[in-house]
Write a protein that binds this DNA or RNA. Structure first.
Lengths: 172, 172
DNA sequence: AAAGTCGGTTTCGAAAAGGAACTCAGAGGG
DNA sequence: CCCTCTGAGTTCCTTTTCGAAACCGACTTT
């Protein structure tokens, strides 16, 4: 698909997918989050083609998710490091990891565990409410039109769904 | 890339990407989570090609993320509904939404807000520790080898990184 | 009888991915 | 000096995948 169609959509999920919406990009970011910051090391680790890796890294730099920091001159060589914007994507990766741990791990259990250094526990990352702090279940939350909402490509039907729901609520 | 290479990787993120690792699948799941459950409605909403939508829906059913439930016979017609496994993917979508809200929303603010019905607040979904309940920062957590860990395609370099870190920790 | 709805499948040209080889700049060894 | 190696890409070519549009089958509506 044309990437432009995604970042034009009035939807934060679509705009996030414009940055990480393919199979390799999240794995590249995972490697970089682990401290694997060089081209060849990432390429070896993932077995990705050099061409695609090169394209993805350039795109991530262009999106402001990664920055290239020189570690030597002559020849010029760079490490790829996450920016703040990129580091913040870790939570998307952690959500993927949590789902994969729960639904795709074999009998041996998950390949990677997370330790929370603040409390010392081996833990899982769970979603909670920024306001009350309670753990969230899918059924506890309702989407509403936000200030940036506009009906258009990518959410025409969603607008209709919200209308119907609001109408039903007003009636009750 | 060959999908098989992804689900063979010893990595929960890669195995999650085997299911949702393209640009359209998360948007399809978003629509279904909103209650847009029919082929044509999803197609109209997203502007996705019918061919690709058909392929994606079949794959999601095959992965056990969606189920087809008949809503009429003659002709046979189906709604697509999430299974429990599929509903649980909502947290991956919400993590994407949170990132998109923070980093890609325009001046108007996010297009969609979330209300937590339990506490009534307009809220954001934030990651927290399953053990102590505190909100997590990226710097608070450390990855460790889990029981299912095995070095292989997709994490050879990661294994080396963990070794180096453990060695450095043992020395200190 | 003609047109419309729903949920697809088929076809075909265009775009993207994959793989392997090649390049460039320098470092190290003999 | 010559040969080889490393790191980071780029080029070239083949294989997949995508997207648009047309087509289809089983009904319903006008």
């Amino acid at each position: 698909m044309a990437r432009s169609s995604l970042d034009q959509m009035n939807c934060s999920i679509a705009r996030t997918l414009d940055v990480i919406g393919d199979a390799w990009t999240p794995l590249i970011l995972r490697d970089i989050a682990f401290g694997i910051s060089r081209f060849d090391a990432i390429q070896r680790d993932l077995g990705i083609s050099r061409k695609v890796l090169s394209e993805r890294l350039s795109a991530l730099v262009a999106h402001g998710v990664l920055q290239r920091v020189p570690y030597q001159d002559k020849p010029a060589r760079y490490d790829y490091h996450p920016t703040e914007k990129g580091a913040d994507l870790a939570f998307v990766l952690l959500a993927m990891q949590a789902w994969g741990d729960r639904w795709t791990a074999g009998d041996d259990g998950p390949p990677i565990l997370i330790r929370h250094e603040t409390c010392g526990a081996l833990t899982k990352v769970v979603p909670s409410c920024a306001s009350c702090g309670k753990r969230l279940a899918v059924t506890d939350i309702t989407p509403l039109r936000g200030p940036g909402f506009e009906s258009g490509p990518g959410n025409a039907e969603i607008s209709a769904v919200l209308d119907r729901r609001d109408a039903a609520a007003a009636e009750a």
